[in-house]
Amino acid sequence: MGLKEVTIRIGPDPSLLRIVRLAASSLATDVGFTVHEIDDLVLAVDELVSALLETAEQEVEISLRADKVSVTIRGRAPGMGAIELGDLAKAVLDQTADLYDIEPDGDVPSFSMVKVRDSAAA
């Protein structure tokens, strides 16, 4: 199975978070994630993407990429201040994502996260 990639540009509207979740869960299904793994992925997406959508003032770009073992999600929010994650958001991400960071991409606030299939990580 080849690489699958989707890029979504959405306005800074938290109600659009669902679209990103569905895209993420759809890609994860394609590469064989279980229901349990998708549940974790969705919780992680919720935390990171909402951090963008709740504070961004311009269009936000979310790219999702899946290969046979993982789903990687990156978000960029030009024009907004640094992404800030609260302690609770970090705790949720610690438990549900395999990797995440909120390093800026140049001067653009960005995040990335990776969720690996349990069977692939084992």
């Binding site: 919780l43 919720d46 609770l88 958001a89 949720v92 438990q95």
Partner: peptide, 20 residues
């Protein structure tokens, strides 16, 4: 310690989804 993020995450998710 392990459970707290799951519980809190679920509630945060709920509040975000109220409109939908």
């Amino acid at each position: 310690t392990f459970a707290r993020p799951f519980i809190v995450g679920e509630m945060r998710h709920h509040f975000r989804d109220e409109a939908w």
